[in-house]
Design a protein around this nucleic acid. Structure first.
Lengths: 146, 146
DNA sequence: CTACTTGCAAAGAGTTTGCTAGGCC
DNA sequence: GGCCTAGCAAACTCTTTGCAAGTAG
């Protein structure tokens, strides 16, 4: 289990909130997906694993996680909210296997170079970077060619 | 669902616009038809699938998609506008301002270099990349220091 | 056991649609 | 006249709420 997920459990407990499968599922999906999701996208993704999940639980959980400062609500717009998990520690990128779903974390000096380049070219102060690559891991590639 | 359609959904959402069947239908018809269509042709084609669709919705949606830079308005002559879907580069990255929510698209050869590096180092076949940088745009930075 | 949570249905807030009737070259 | 927009009630999207049933501690 990931460090973030354990942290989430601990925080829920310490605030007298209950650790339910739904909450963990929602948190996990957000974590795995990395990029920004809105409530409905998250709902559909989570529903694949737990079909009885309800949309209102997604909304309630998002509000809860937000109150606990575990996720960030991004206001791309006044009306619509996106959410993302707050990360601790060193920034890292994700390699997501579309075959088996495995997530490999990696770090690359190139991401820092992108940040530097953008800061320079667009007069934009970069505070965080999400780099997610999707594709197929070696194991799945071998499976596919069998 | 096609990648473009998903992208359209995402863009609508991220701008606080609602994802309606009419908007998706119009976008889909444009996509399937490929070439350029004028409002009336598009209206007739879309109406085959959703007879209650109104012409003003077609115009409103075309203007919306144009504002979102998803389609292009072509002026072959003064009287008549044609529209076609903008081809979007295979990979485009995002610069997201946490202050005002503006989303700037950019491309960087560095993203390709990351892909190449990962392919080599992790024996992973990369099929797609998401690079989202968050931070503050110049306008918001100036606002903050006031 | 008891209080907190969930799923469902339905309400609420705000946007979008379909009409009809114009406006503009 | 042909192409596009405006105004407005009705319909819809997205989010929240109320409540009975279910579950964590």
């Amino acid at each position: 289990m990931s460090t973030e997920l354990k942290e989430a459990r601990r925080l829920l407990r310490s605030q007298g909130k209950r650790v339910t499968p739904q909450r963990l599922l929602i948190f996990e999906v957000m974590q795995e997906h990395g990029g920004h999701l809105d409530a409905d996208e998250l709902y559909l993704l989570a529903k694949e694993r737990e079909p009885r999940l309800s949309l209102s639980t997604v909304y309630r959980t998002l509000n809860l996680l937000k109150e606990m400062d575990l996720i960030e609500e991004l206001h791309f717009d006044e009306e619509h909210h996106h959410y993302e998990i707050k990360r601790r520690g060193a920034e890292h990128s994700h390699l997501i296997c579309l075959g088996c779903g495995e997530i490999i974390e990696f770090e690359s000096p190139l991401t820092d170079r992108i940040k530097a380049q953008i800061t320079q070219d667009h007069h934009f102060q970069v505070t965080g970077a999400h780099v997610d690559l999707k594709g197929y891991c070696q194991r799945c590639l071998e499976g596919l060619t069998k």
